[in-house]
Simulated scan of single mutants.
Amino acid sequence: MIELRDLRKEFAGVTALDGITLSVPAGEIHGIVGRSGAGKSTLIRCLTGLERPTSGTVRIGEVEITSARGAALRTARRTIGMVFQHANLLDSRTALRNVEHPLEIAGVPRSKRRARAAELLELVGLADRGGSYPAQLSGGQQQRVGIARALAAEPQILLCDEPTSALDSRTTRQILDLIRSLRDRLGITVLIITHEMSVVREVCDSVTLLADGQIENTGSIIDALSQADSPLSRALLPLPPSGRPSGTVVETLTTGISLDTALEAVRSSGADAHLDAGTVETIAGTVVGRLQFTVADAAGAQTLITSLAARDIHAEVA
């Protein structure tokens, strides 16, 4: 559905994107993560045709965005629905009329756009709030209206730019559940730009880490997590603070293994290991855990690592 090929973008000699090649299949929820300045915003602008890349191509479905001009580009942009960090609703319009707005611009007759807007508000759980103005809605409700508006023109892609960073944790979960539900019901492809790893863990099927305008890591969530030494794996599943352990520190990464099984493997190794910190989550239906142990000396640490490796548990001296 989304194909980027050797995408480069330079601004006055400064490289913002450096050879980005990425493929996102139809119906997938893909996360783009990276620190400030990594190139995320430039990537969005190239995807939507707001910026022309210096070289390379952007293809969405059968349309090559980089070569489209005029009416063809406007038509191509209608295949992309945008959801922003802040809903950016028009204060003078009700929720229903905010959802109608892109259809009104496209020249859709009033009766048809009114019916479509009502249908979408029901889809996002706001069937009874069509007559409410933005000031009468909570932040989560405003974001739901923004999502409904993004879906008005029946796009193939939902592009979400930090869609939950202005929301509390409970509302964030509700919005992510809604995005997943919409993907399942409508079959749309979703691209989420975010700095929140919790969002990626919660809803994404795959993820790409950008650093200095380049792809540092990309793949399915489980594949990314399984690369124990990668910055992306550590960011997706970080260890909580553990103080200052006295001894040799060993970290383990388990995929598809229960916590009880991992701890039993440690006990059966015979090493004098103490659990200092750990985090275990179910991500994409798979139990994933990162544990930190302190062992008295290097010899004991090696015994532990060798024993765990025999049980397909990755372990290394931190």
Rank of each mutant, 00 (worst) to 15 (best):
M1L: 10
K9P: 09
E10M: 12
E10W: 10
G19C: 04
A26G: 14
S36A: 04
S41W: 00
G49M: 05
P53A: 03
T57Y: 06
I60R: 01
I60Q: 02
V63L: 13
R69K: 11
A72H: 11
R74N: 11
A76T: 05
V83K: 05
F84I: 10
H86R: 12
D91W: 08
R97M: 11
N98E: 02
A117P: 06
G125S: 02
G130T: 03
G139P: 01
G140F: 03
R144E: 01
L151R: 06
E154W: 13
D161A: 00
T164Y: 04
A166K: 05
D168Q: 07
L176R: 01
D177T: 07
D177Q: 02
L186N: 04
I188F: 05
T189K: 09
L191R: 06
T194C: 03
T194M: 09
Q214F: 08
N217F: 13
D223G: 03
A224P: 03
L225R: 02
L237A: 00
P238K: 01
P240C: 01
S246N: 12
T248M: 14
V249E: 15
V250G: 03
L253Q: 07
G256K: 07
A265S: 14
S269C: 06
D272C: 08
T286D: 07
T286P: 02
V287R: 13
V287P: 13
V288E: 00
V288M: 03
Q292R: 15
A301Q: 02
L308D: 08
